[in-house]
Amino acid sequence: MLLRYRGSEGMVAWAFHRISGIAIWLFVLLHVLDIYLAGGNPNVYDDILKFYASTPGRIMEVLLGAALLYHALNGIRIMLMDLWPSLTAYHKQMWYANWAIFVGLGLPGAFIIMRPALGL
């Protein structure tokens, strides 16, 4: 449905922005709760930390980083078009530029996060 309905990049960009935003918000809720425990109950926090440092935890951190990077880059794209509406004519090109930056920064980033889990 996401790819067929009106089909074009603009709508997918919008849907991804919304989905990544909600995902980041959910992580922020979790993250404030865990960091609150670091002050209130350090032993419980240190147990939670073991999950963050585990392989499934690291995979989720890569996904979090991906959501954050997409939301950040697409947010800049939205603001550029808000400031200079004539850029809207190039919204697709800007979206593809976003993906180029996303892959360029994201792949090395994902490698660094996963490296301890891969034993490298």
Partner: peptide, 15 residues
């Protein structure tokens, strides 16, 4: 995630 690693971020380390 890049400068530090989650495995070192105990509550003692944070504070």
């Amino acid at each position: 995630h890049f400068v530090f690693d989650p495995s070192q971020q105990t509550s003692t380390w944070i504070f």
